[in-house]
Write a protein that binds this DNA or RNA. Structure first.
Lengths: 154, 154
DNA sequence: ATTAAATGTCAATAAAGTTGACCTATAGAC
DNA sequence: GTCTATAGGTCAACTTTATTGACATTTAAT
């Protein structure tokens, strides 16, 4: 950053705006640091952020339907189509017809899909764990509270 | 989300992976909730996330040089060029030659630029403040610690 | 038989970003 | 003064990505 904010400045600045501005910058730089490592791995295979999201949520919700995935990711089906098909053609995601309703397609990760997903998400988990250990249980719990509360804002 | 994670599940799940997975999802959904309100305002004027970032950092660092802005935003000058020129043409950002070095251009917000920036960032500050008040000072401090630590990861 | 849901696809277009080349103006070193 | 490096700007060609709208297929439900 241009004007690095020093520790003493952090403690001394008492204007209510300052803390919130710092929060905004923390969010911006924090999120960027959080997505950079997996993005580097994805880049090597010509994949992007969307592909990680697909891999992640399919991994967390095996047999998820296409529509449910669309809802989670908040994208149009046309926008999902290309990257999803790409993952299927790369044999990272499997697609098959649901038994209970033959209209719906269920998505799940293949063995190599699980492997890649674990690698991608693994970098983030290690990073978070390192930070949580550094700041302690208490701060980590606070972080979770804030992020949980924020996520629930419509 | 497809499988909503309930409060009791949060407390009961003790596998180390679960907490980290939840952290990852908190980060994803939290960031999305955080950027959605300003994005709606920007959309009305045909602007996007980049424009907000430019307005924000120029607002925070008046007289910032183009190169410094590029470093902060981590984009190529060609990628910055279009949105920045757009903001200048919309009279939201002012550009002028630096006195100390006539090669460098200094950027700052115009009156209407400040107004828009305040509106955009204001939605985020209100949102964060509401969350911080809900979870209390302690949790808010923890959140700052975690995000600060994360931001400093290279 | 009809309607609705879940999915997929195509075309046309628009928006964004990338690389590489090139240009001007100015500063600093020699 | 000459040479080189820096700060900035622009153009072209291309790729990627997303968006809208239309349309088709398969299957469920009534």
């Amino acid at each position: 950053m241009v004007d690095q904010i020093t520790h003493s400045e952090t403690l001394l600045s008492k204007l209510p705006e300052t803390g919130l501005h710092q929060a905004i910058e923390h969010f911006y730089f924090g999120y960027r640091a959080f997505t950079a490592p997996p993005d580097r791995i994805l880049d090597q295979r010509g994949l992007g952020r969307v592909h990680h999201r697909i891999l992640y949520f399919v991994g967390r919700h095996p047999q998820i339907s296409v529509n449910s995935l669309l809802s989670i990711l908040n994208v149009s089906k046309q926008a999902l189509n290309a990257p999803l098909r790409q993952l299927i053609e790369m044999h990272l995601v499997e697609i098959n017809t649901a038994e209970h309703d033959r209209r719906v397609r269920q998505l799940s990760l293949t063995a190599s899909g699980k492997k890649l997903e674990a690698r991608l998400t693994g970098t983030q988990m290690k990073q978070l764990q390192a930070v949580f250990e550094t700041v302690g249980e208490n701060a980590a719990a606070g972080w979770h509270q804030v992020m949980g509360c924020l996520s629930k804002q419509e």
